[in-house]
Design a protein around this nucleic acid. Sequence first.
DNA 1: ATGGCCTCGGTTCGAGGA
Length: 255
Amino acid sequence: MKLATWNVNSLKVRLPQVLQWLSTSPVDILCLQETKLTDDKFPVAEIEAAGYQVAFTGQKTYNGVAILSRYPIHDVVKNNPLFEDEQQRIISATIEGMRIVCAYIPNGQAVDSDKYQYKLRWLDALARWLSDELQSNPSLALLGDYNIAPADADVYDPVEWAGQVLCSDPERAAFERLVALGLQDAFRMFPQAEKLYSWWDYRQMAFRRNRGLRIDHILLSPPLASRCTACEIDKLPRKWEQPSDHTPVIATLTP
DNA sequence: ATGGCCTCGGTTCGAGGA
């Protein structure tokens, strides 16, 4: 069983790459963020033709999330019931006995901005909601673009980024609060090479210089963490023409 | 250097991303 997450930065632009990637990396479940599509424009037929069922919630221009699955999708819930939010950033569903939560956590823009305060409030509500969810769904995975680099090892230049949005202490504390619910960062369950990231700025040849951050994560509750045998970042799609600025992260679970 | 790039909406620039 393979679970993956990928911020595609517009599914309209990236659909061919998503289908290409799935054809060579046929994961069982793929969570997408930043689809940037209203629901009437979602490419259901193309995704079903590739062998995946799909649940999605979107809006014009910004945000939008989706879950693609080779197995039946049950009990779809859109957004966080504990947080009034017009922005479409969460979709969750039960697949093969697992509660799959796909999240596009707010960017936060800058630590002195209103958007940063919204991000912290959003994360507080996420932790409160997941605490409840874990009671009724012990096998839970939270996959998505967290917009948080949990530690300095996840940042190409920790000094330059110290205290900045994506790396600030309150954001890292919010990440640790999710960990304190019993969720494990699948990537850090295993030995990894240094300087592995999931996002690189489009500017300044950041990808070529590997000036990246690890901000896309798969967190697993104990029953799923105990089944997890690997977690990898697939850099390949970031090398393709007209790429997303993020690249997929994949966790492998025993059946 | 309040930069640089990409996407969207909608026009030839601004907002937002990270």
